[in-house]
Design a protein around this nucleic acid. Structure first.
Lengths: 185, 185, 185, 185
DNA sequence: CATGAATGAGTTTTCATTCAT
DNA sequence: AATGAATGAAAACTCATTCAT
């Protein structure tokens, strides 16, 4: 692994474990087996590192969501794909998933305001489904909340040891539950 | 308002706005119109202040949940009470609600592990309802996730300006949505 | 006991236990069962309190030495009186003795430079005895060192638990030892 | 001189001049011509610096005492070596000597309780000499006090300007004085 | 007299970032 | 590219002293 990649991985882990503020460049360097100075050869600042980490993982994730959804026509199938993507990502790399989807980043708020995020992605999905009569005529943001909340809360529970992984085992149940909540009468 | 209360309010607001780590004692003192030193007359450390703030608000909130739930017999009615408590609390004092329920506190993780929390409260509610056949026989932690996620995600959306307050207006819709997800066939 | 006396005693004890710098006015107030503010009603500052404490005890001690020495003619008898005064003072109030004679007060150095101290007292005694041929013709400061060192070092040992009190039990031995060191051939 | 060594020297001097508590990291940094932050690259805290300073100098000093004493058989010769070591050390580096032997370190009391110190060293020497009949049958701690007190008090006098250096000039007189005090009849 | 809340200057310590090598 | 010593600005925290009551 290149030093740059080692720094990224070390930072990602520490940011998730402790939060960005509580993580020091010294800790990152130590875990990446390099020097503090070297971090600055690869990243212009700790904040830039945090931001890079965010978008480097967010874009492929959104891309995966996009591909999966495009491959299906019906909302229920699309939801099933979405849940599978979320949970497969979680099971494969819990740290990245947590950084992207569970952490509260006051830091990143400024960037995510304008950009595409999982929230805007699902919101669009919902709007389309409501328009097509595929789900109940709910305020789209409420439906989005139901979907995201129902998907993410179990992930939080695994992180805090309240639920046993892998999450993919719950995918079908979660999809079914969401669908019951949103399906037209 | 006593200086102690002013310090608590200032800290609460700043902790929610910026996170605990990113908030300095200098900022707290400035917003509370007092000196940094005075913070330490009333709290032994910044962390102790954060903790006090957490439990001082958590306990009445849990108590309110308890009272509300005890007043009802059926799970659907109990859920309706729970949602109302959450959303009324949010609408009345968004800052406190955010601090208690939306913030990720690496700091407080150690305390909440053992203590009663909204999660454990709802989990117990769910277990009881599953046992009584009042909701579908789901893994209780998944049902808990559906309830909490569906309740909290809209609150997050209001905070980020994606949904218009007051949240109480969505209470019925949210209860109905949760109930569709959990009701026995 | 008046509050003023309580403050003095509390301060004396704490200064000896921890050093003057390491002792806070808060600790003094707590041990004296009063408030910090009240210290300033009786003393203008912590340093003034430390200084008062020093001279309030030093002067009677020097006076006692003076009286004792004046009552004897021969150097050996005078030495015996001096040792008895030192050790009786120690046994009666170890804290005061330690504050006066064992503590290193960078604080008080400025005062003791000009004033009479146990060192100057014994130095004068020695000069007189050398002049009278009562002790060997040693450099007076060396003889002074022998006397003071031989008297005080056992006190230090009691404080650190290396020697069992009461010190008065060692008085004769100490006098004899000093006398062997200083007696003319 | 490396910055680390400069910090150590600056701290040593200031600790002796003013006491540990009264010395600020700012002063240390200024005298060492470096930044306060840099102190913490090399020492984990001001107290750790004070402790390092103590043991780094104590151990070679004790080693020197040990070597000197081992080279002689008779108690008087051993004492002469001991006094020479003390006074040569003083004359060469009064600051280090003062820090090791004249300062009262409430800080270090906890460490010196268990460890070997000049006191324990001389105490052992005395016990051995009493057992061998080389000195009078005194309570060993009293004899130890006589030796240490007679050696150290002149050092204190030089520090306070009451006696002219170099101390080595008084070595023979001091040894003779101690020997008169302790020699068997 | 007495209190204890409040102050503010100062202390130790931390840490992102820079720089000489 | 890489190191790690060094910096300096700012952080949390302390504490003698003051002041309103």
């Amino acid at each position: 692994m290149s030093k740059k990649a080692a720094i990224q991985r070390a930072a990602l882990e520490l940011f998730v474990e402790q939060g960005i503020d509580a993580t020091t460049t010294k800790q990152i360097a130590a875990r990446a087996n390099t020097s503090e100075g070297n971090i600055y050869r690869h990243f212009s600042s700790k904040d830039a590192l945090a931001e890079t980490l965010f978008f480097d993982h967010l874009l492929p994730f959104l891309e995966a969501l996009d591909v999966a959804v495009s491959s299906r026509e019906h909302m229920r199938d699309r939801l099933a794909e979405v849940v599978r993507i979320f949970y497969r990502t979680f099971d494969e790399d819990r740290v990245t998933f947590s950084y992207l989807l569970l952490s509260q980043h006051q830091h990143l708020a400024k960037f995510t305001e304008s950009a595409e995020t999982p929230v805007t992605f699902i919101h669009r999905l919902v709007q389309h489904a409501v328009a097509g009569g595929e789900i109940r005529p709910l305020e789209p943001m409420i439906a989005t909340g139901t979907i995201l909340g129902t998907i993410l809360q179990p992930a939080t529970f695994v992180v805090y040891g309240r639920l046993d992984p892998p999450l993919i085992d719950y995918a079908e149940t979660v999809v079914d539950t969401i669908w019951r909540a949103l399906a037209p009468d």
